[in-house]
């Protein structure tokens, strides 16, 4: 059935029934944003905050302290992390007993589905961010699987300030997405999950994380 469908559809598309032309207008050149690093950090922060993300700009040496201060006393049942990443190693080295236990995502989802859907928080790295529309870039991997940034109610994302690009197009270009080959799943994330499906009233925390905390490391 499908083989015929394919041939039939393609042959119909190749047979134009009437005369006439289908002009393609020239695409105008649009100058993208060209902001300084400071401006990119500032714009990203503002846009993320508008979308109810919490953003903390902090030095690479002080950020773990800031993270711990934020997590202490929140009574979270665990922090999901990727043990095989440099971030994971840094967390393990710095972790203390009065903090929510670190839970590595190390088995396939079939083995740990229950836990994934009940853990309170998850922490991931990011591949970069986009200043123009205020979004983080995530490329989940074997070391940091896809559900880490989705099932926990609190998603903590760690971003190197130097990886903030002006625009989405610039990120694709400068990070050589095409040359490198697309990952199984790439994501842009601009805040905690939200909906406006009831009377257009904006509400945060639907099926994805209810909170997004972003550490921008300078």
């Amino acid at each position: 059935m499908t083989a015929n469908a394919r041939a039939n559809i393609l042959s119909r598309l190749r047979a134009t029934t009437t005369q006439g032309s289908f002009a393609v207008p020239d695409a105008p050149v649009i100058a993208g944003l060209a902001l300084s690093l400071e401006e990119r950090i500032d714009r990203l922060r503002r846009m993320l905050e508008t979308m109810h993300a919490e953003v903390q700009v902090v030095s690479s040496s002080a950020w773990l302290g800031a993270l711990k201060a934020r997590l202490r006393a929140r009574g979270l049942n665990g922090l999901l992390y990727g043990a095989e990443t440099p971030l994971g190693a840094a967390l393990e080295a710095a972790w203390e007993d009065d903090l929510p236990p670190l839970v590595p995502y190390s088995e396939s989802v079939e083995q740990c589905r229950e836990q994934l859907f009940h853990i309170d928080a998850g922490i991931t790295t990011t591949r970069g961010a986009i200043a123009e529309n205020g979004a983080l870039i995530l490329w989940p991997s074997a070391a940091e699987p896809r559900l880490m940034s989705l099932t926990p109610g609190l998603h903590i994302a760690v971003l190197e300030a130097g990886m903030i690009f002006n625009t989405f197009a610039e990120a694709i270009d400068q990070q050589a997405w095409l040359q490198e080959g697309m990952p199984t799943n790439a994501l842009l994330i601009s805040g905690p999950s939200k909906t406006a499906d009831i009377e257009l009233t904006l509400t945060f925390g639907v099926h994805g994380p209810k909170e997004l905390v972003v550490f921008i490391l300078t």
Binding site: M47, M51, E132, N133, G134, A135, M182, P183, T184, N185, A186, L187, L188, I189, S190, G191, P192, S193, K194, G208
Partner: peptide, 12 residues
């Protein structure tokens, strides 16, 4: 300016 998620799927 963008939705919360832009989800790009390239493989199983």
């Amino acid at each position: 300016p963008i939705t919360t998620y832009f989800n790009m799927i390239t493989a199983p």
